[in-house]
Design a binder for these strands. Structure first.
Length: 585
RNA sequence: GAUCUCGUAGCUCAGUCGGUAGAGCACUUGACUUUUAAUCAAGGAGUCAUGGGUUCGAGUCCCAUCGAGAUCACCA
């Protein structure tokens, strides 16, 4: 016999392994000598503790289905119990009707006013009738009174409840207070409360609750993060894996995480407003593309069944936006997701957000001016004081223009003393070898320059810096420099040692563009998986004629990291890509 | 992809030389009608990531796997 009935009837405590079957809460007594499938569960739903509810046993044979193997903790079981008990008492834990909210926690805390009258009583001047809704995040019982913290989207406010307010005038019974609120309410439950604002003896603005309503029961315990008077945080929910996998918990419990994402939204809104003011048209272009172009990266590949053809998730939208310029729009922009099938790390997520905009009859100098104005505006929108300075680690970064403009060759000269313009390839190779920069035989002069730059210069560019005039080999879509042979009219913007934007005067010479594509094809033939594919339709568009155009792309996620002081891209994406959890595969 | 570090209660973490699994908060029961990291008393809660191995005995040592983080590589 591997289980006995009597201890089960006496109480749950004899059993340690709880599982959930598809319909009920179960208790299973496991016999480790038998295979899992042969172990049995008792299933009587939620009232095994209450003697008035005769256990309704069903004995289930286990299957291996994952749902059978989901074990519940004691606290989860108790919450299911209180859910069931609420229903028994005629209280719906998940009501359907609206709860009309008339006030927010932060507003009451900030704006509540009262006056002290001559006789010492207090006269409440506002918030005399409020209804607010949110999660109950803390609760402190003090005899026949109770304090809670309610958290809504604006912040937290203390609630004060008195047994007297819920007592029956004749009988003195207060089941709503004694049983429902005191026993069946759990931390994390959503509640709607009605009452009035007041100040407690200790001066905290609170809501005296006269009416309490369950809006949604929470069946899992939230991490309880506490803060003391000095601001020390206890038991913070910090494990990055859990925070990213369960962002809803992270957002509930960690207020500063919410702030980061509110800032992200503000950054995007500010950019959009600025570009709209410039008169650009916001557009949407295909995410599913038959030819992935516009950048050097490996794509995600998928398949369209009806057309029976491969499609790629876009790695860039550049070629489509230029087609729109060909079509006669003076300026277009798109804010959207790009997808690159590459490694993941602190600054790379497989899907990420880009802003690209293209404006006809402009060049890259104009783009630099626009960039300065746009970023200054974003900085002022997100900084605490409305100023243009943003703190990034130990650096104060000034976003008000003009930014330093430095040619790539000058930058390298300045930080290494190397004159790459006059230096030959062997000299550059020597330099790399002496400075521990990894190179291989296939690298041409342009690639070597890029390596030296990345290794020796990039990290020094803390204040916003436009790095201009790149070698032509690295930029297959960029117009040749108006006066410097071998270079293109391109800049990248570096801030805090990282690239945040990439821009150029667009190549609009269709014959030159065809040659550049052909060069890319040669790279692809040599095994370069990131080389661009020939896009005949794009060339056809250019042949119809594209006006001189300036175009720029910004990594919105990295921009957000910069403006929110985050060092990991995962902190600025609600749901960063993760490997599947155990059991999800 | 490589290397290092980590995975113990719902959360944050201890766990000595290999010898019965620990704390605070959370939870349960009780007391308290202005508390606030509420307090006081008592109690319960664990597949020590997973699977193997060594051993009389493994949270601890070894191997593999899974997941996470950091560094590097890759990456316009």
């Amino acid at each position: 016999m591997f289980f006995e009935f009597q201890p089960f009837l006496d109480g749950i405590k004899f059993f340690r392994n709880f599982v959930r079957c598809d319909r009920h809460t179960c208790v299973v007594c496991r016999d480790k000598n038998k295979p899992f499938q042969q172990q049995f569960a008792f299933c009587d739903c939620l009232f095994y503790r209450n003697p008035t509810f005769a256990p309704r046993f069903t004995i289930h044979q286990f299957t291996n289905s994952p749902i059978h193997q989901q074990r519940m903790t004691e606290q989860e079981l108790l919450r299911r119990e209180s859910l069931q008990k609420l229903r028994e008492l005629g209280i719906e834990p998940y009501p359907a009707e609206m709860f009309e909210v008339t006030a927010f926690a932060a507003d009451i805390v900030a704006n509540y006013k009262e006056e002290v009258l001559d006789d010492g009583t207090r006269n409440r001047l506002n918030y005399r009738e409020v209804a607010l809704a949110g999660r109950i995040m803390a609760s402190r019982e003090a005899g026949k009174a109770m304090f809670m913290n309610l958290q809504d989207s604006s912040g937290r406010i203390q609630l004060y409840l008195r047994r007297d307010d819920f007592a029956n005038a004749e009988t003195g019974d207060a089941p709503m207070f004694d049983t429902v609120i005191k026993k069946l309410l759990d931390l994390g439950d959503y509640a709607g409360v009605k009452g009035f604002a007041f100040k407690t003896k200790t001066g905290e603005v609170s809501v005296h609750v006269q009416d309490f309503k369950f809006l949604a029961k929470s069946l899992r315990p939230l991490p309880v993060v506490k803060k003391d008077a000095e601001g020390h945080v206890y038991d913070a929910f910090t494990d990055p894996e859990q925070r990213y996998r369960m962002r809803y918990v992270d957002l509930t419990v960690n207020q500063e995480v919410r702030e980061t994402f509110i800032k992200r939204s503000k950054i995007i809104r500010t950019i959009r407003a600025y570009l709209d003011e410039l008169g650009l048209l916001e557009v949407e272009t295909p995410i599913l593309q038959p030819i992935h172009g516009g950048a050097a990266a490996r794509p995600f590949k998928t398949h369209h069944n009806a057309l029976d053809m491969p499609l790629y998730l876009r790695i860039a939208n550049e070629l489509y936006l230029k087609r729109l310029i060909v079509g006669g729009f003076d300026g277009v922009y798109e804010l959207g997701k790009m997808f690159r099938n590459e490694g993941m790390d602190r600054t790379h997520n497989p899907e990420f957000s880009m802003l690209e905009f293209y404006v006809a009859y402009k060049d890259y100098h104009w783009l630099m001016d626009v960039t300065e104005r746009m970023l200054e505006r974003v900085a002022r929108a997100v900084s605490a004081d409305g100023g243009s300075v943003i703190k990034a680690g130990e650096h104060d970064i000034e976003f008000a223009g003009p930014y330093r403009r430095l040619t790539m060759f000058d930058a390298i000269q300045q930080y290494t003393g190397l004159n790459v313009e006059t230096a030959g390839e062997p000299e550059l190779r020597n330099y790399c070898r002496q400075n521990g920069i990894e190179i291989d035989a296939t690298m041409g002069k342009a690639k070597l320059i890029d390596e030296i730059f990345g290794e020796k210069v990039e990290g020094h560019l803390i204040q916003p810096t436009f790095l201009i005039d790149y070698p032509v080999e690295m930029s297959p879509l960029t117009k040749k420099h108006r006066s410097k042979p071998g270079l293109v009219e391109r800049f990248e913007l570096f801030v805090n040692g990282k690239e945040v934007g990439n821009a150029y005067s667009e190549l609009n010479d269709p014959l030159d563009q065809r040659e550049r594509f052909e060069e890319q094809l040669r790279l692809a033939a040599r095994g370069d998986e990131e080389a661009m594919a020939m896009d005949e339709d794009f060339l056809r568009a250019l042949e119809y004629g594209m006006p001189p155009t300036a175009g720029i792309g910004f990594g919105i996620d990295r921009l957000t990291m910069l403006f929110t002081g985050q060092t990991s891209i995962q902190e600025v994406l609600f749901f960063p890509q993760m490997r599947p959890e155990a059991g999800e595969r």
